[in-house]
């Protein structure tokens, strides 16, 4: 319809892979992840006037996704619904071959490990360790000081390393 929007829509399409990965690392569930991405896109376009031109579109959209995820998590808590721990990670990944199967298992395991972290730590891990954002950008997405971000990360690292890599050999520590 409006040609002036095309560059923004194109930027959003280009962001979708990262947004899907971010959403999956938050929700640890395929279906929820894509629902979250869809809600994020709709919310972003409906509130586009709130996005400050010249600032990073990705940070802004990640922030929307994060807020929607937290809101959803709060709603689930309020309703005292039991969140199913089953991981629906099966999908396009594990279709053929050992490699694909291994990749699928690795992702499923990682989702499960992430899912055991408190949500605030999970967000920090998703942004910095998985998406590779700088501390500054990640803190901006979460709306917290950098010091808070790094202390959440520090706690998450310990817990995650034990789950994913096993106990540390008590060599130096």
């Amino acid at each position: 319809m409006d040609a002036s929007l095309d560059p923004i829509r194109n930027q959003m399409v280009a962001l979708l892979p990262r947004l899907r990965r971010f959403a999956l690392s938050l929700t640890a569930n395929r279906a929820d992840a894509d629902d979250l991405v869809q809600d994020t896109v709709e919310r972003a376009l409906a509130n586009l006037h709130r996005w400050e031109r010249g600032t990073k579109l990705d940070s802004w959209m990640f922030r929307i996704a994060q807020n929607l995820f937290i809101d959803g998590a709060r709603a689930r808590k309020r309703a005292r619904m039991v969140v199913s721990e089953t991981l629906e990670a099966a999908g396009n990944v594990a279709t053929d071959g050992m490699r694909a199967a291994e990749a699928h298992i690795a992702l499923t395991d990682m989702c499960r490990a992430l899912g055991e972290l408190p949500e605030e730590q999970r967000s920090a891990v998703a942004l910095v360790l998985i998406d590779g954002m700088s501390y500054r950008d990640a803190a901006a997405v979460l709306g917290i000081p950098i010091g808070t971000l790094t202390s959440r990360l520090a706690r998450a690292r310990e817990a995650l390393a034990v789950r994913v890599l096993g106990e540390a050999k008590s060599a130096g520590a």
């Binding site: 899907r20 690392s25 992702l107 360790l129 590779g132 995650l160």
Partner: peptide, 9 residues
């Protein structure tokens, strides 16, 4: 390990 696991997405 985290990066590898999520890379296929």
């Amino acid at each position: 390990r985290l990066a590898e696991a999520f890379a296929p997405v």
